[in-house]
């Protein structure tokens, strides 16, 4: 094989991009259109930077890693939440319409304040291990079955891009809803035997319309998650956990059935 362009060159792409600067409310939100000639392996990261550098230097958007691991660049791509950096224009039609993610505070144009949302979520769900005993620097690490470690890692893979929140029918109308990412975060810690929180503690956070019972089961979160997190399974695990019924994570893993005690 060779690294030949994976697509036709020379297609003219029309970008219609949402514009609004909250510090200049006198300018109404609107769409600006830009045209670019498509290049091989062009991603929305490359395209948006070209638009900024060649057409409009004031255009706001967020990228950091540009390799789909940092979660900065979630946006609405032709109406669907996704990571701009890992979206090849080859997979999109000639007209590409970009909006900021809904459900988050707008910074400007395509940039939203996911950082603030996720910090608040982390505080609310207390997204840290509630230690059972202080760290002992002299001791070797506590043992953990590797299957359980892998199951925890599954939930840990969330990159906080906000696509699931933007796609969630409930999160868009109820700002108190902990959201798909929040539920996934709770499941990650609820599964971790190093965390001292009990079923009763989790019940307080989970068992309400702002928690796991707020989910209407539309499951757009599961459809749009760029990391293919097993959100459906995580929610099922949490529902069972609130009933005190979960004896094992539903990420069926051998050898951890009794880990939750």
């Amino acid at each position: 094989m060779s690294t030949k362009p994976s697509q036709e060159e020379g297609r003219t792409l029309r970008f219609e991009i949402f514009r609004y600067d909250p510090t200049r409310p006198e300018v109404e939100p609107h769409l600006d259109a830009f045209e670019l000639v498509e290049q091989p392996y062009m991603t929305l990261y490359l395209a948006l930077n070209r638009i900024r550098e060649e057409h409009d230097p004031s255009l706001q958007f967020d990228f950091a890693c540009r390799s789909a691991v940092c979660g900065s660049c979630g946006m609405m791509i032709n109406g669907r939440p996704g990571l701009a950096c890992s979206t090849l224009t080859a997979n999109l039609p000639d007209v590409i319409r970009l909006h900021p993610l809904p459900a988050f505070e707008l910074v400007g144009d395509l940039s939203v304040d996911t950082g603030k949302w996720f910090r608040e979520m982390a505080e609310r769900t207390e997204s840290w291990i509630h230690e059972r005993a202080p760290f002992d620097p002299e001791a070797i690490e506590e043992r953990m079955d590797d299957d359980l470690a892998q199951a925890i890692y599954e939930g840990e893979r969330c990159i906080e891009c906000g696509c699931c929140v933007a796609g969630c029918g409930v999160a868009n109308v109820n700002p108190r809803f902990v959201g798909p990412a929040g539920l996934n975060r709770i499941a990650r810690f609820a599964l971790d035997p190093r965390d001292a929180r009990s079923d009763t503690d989790w019940f307080e956070v989970l068992a309400s319309d702002d928690g796991v019972f707020g989910c209407l089961g539309l499951m757009a979160c599961d459809d749009v998650c760029p990391k293919d997190l097993p959100l459906r399974e995580q929610y099922a695990y949490l529902r069972r956990r609130t009933m005190g019924a979960a004896r094992a994570p539903l990420l069926q893993v051998e050898g951890v059935a009794n880990a939750q005690g």
């Binding site: 690490e141 506590e142 590797d146």
Partner: peptide, 18 residues
């Protein structure tokens, strides 16, 4: 080694010996 074990204490799901 202490730093890595401290991270285990803080919840890093290190891959474990099978």
């Amino acid at each position: 080694p202490v730093a890595v074990r401290e991270l285990a204490h803080w919840g890093v799901p290190w891959t474990r010996v099978r």
